[in-house]
Amino acid sequence: MIRSEQGRLTSRGLRSLVETGVQTGLGILALAPFVVLVGLVGYLIWVSIPVFRYMRWGFFSHIAWNLGNLYAYHPVLVHGVRVMPGAEFGAFAFLLGTGLTSLMAICLAVPIAFLLASAASFGVSWPWRNILAILVEMMAGVPSVVFGLFGFIVLGPAIATQVGPWLNHWLSPIPFFSGPVTSETNLLTATVTLTLMVIPIVATTTRVAMARVPRDWVDSARALGWTEHEVFWHVIWPHSRAALTGGTILGLGRALGETMAVLMVSGNALNVLPKNIYSGVSTMAATIAGQLDAALTDPTRMAVHALGTLGLILMAISLAVNLIARVVVVSDGQTDHAGGGLAHGIL
């Protein structure tokens, strides 16, 4: 009897030991994202400090990005920081390029994505809606380098020879649309390429929310004699609005951070601001990737630090966008359980 009691006690002790071990392990694992995020932000802030000491607020307002005279015999000391003579690190052109490409891509992508999602969930008849939904989701899985290649080989020449001159002809009274189309890789090509990449994200998020609207609501609206169009606007749309917002922010996040495709089609313009949509641009993400090789040749490492600072700003913008999306979606989701909940889940 006593032996059996002891046996039970021993087994319970072992079990509790295992449980404690598992809980501790999971607790440590749960800390990992926090450690990674803090480590990453901490590192980026650390590499940015000398850049801000050297450039001050000029980092945000200057246009020139110049590694300085790399053949100089000695680095110079400016504001207590060693840099190559004549070095200048201004991120304004990249900030503008990132903002322009991303926002223009969103403006083009959201209406198209909304129409695609509406068609795939309500507009076209079975089985076309399923086929459309699968095609849109497949688009989301295409690697960005493939989009970049498509942009470079197909879109760029088409924009330089057909679309650009046509836009210039018809929209030239609008300042930003007027000007000669001199290059295949420019702001417009980058925007259209990004648009193709953003559309599936926004469309899929919205379509899933639309498909999740309870069938009872749709049926009862139909039973009230509403047309399909009226059912869509009064029942489907109010419930997918939050998801469209969420999808748009997700798409914006992708457009802001997209590197490879933009690097291939934007023209990588340094030291100039785009005069019109046919000008070459560069974004922060593309500059980090495109300029890394050159930056490594800077013996003071200041150029690498400057790219790290671009990374810090890009990360801050992405986090801010994500935060805003949460606020928007949560406030919308309070009156809209289906779409809001979905978009909230995705974000």
């Binding site: 309870p214 009872d216 609501w217 049926d219 009862s220 609206a221 039973a223 009230l224 009064h234 029942v235 109010p238 419930h239 009156t335 809209d336 359980h337």
Partner: peptide, 12 residues
């Protein structure tokens, strides 16, 4: 010809 369903279907 109106219709009422098994589950209540008030719009939100």
């Amino acid at each position: 010809i109106g219709m009422v369903f098994q589950r209540p279907t008030p719009f939100p």
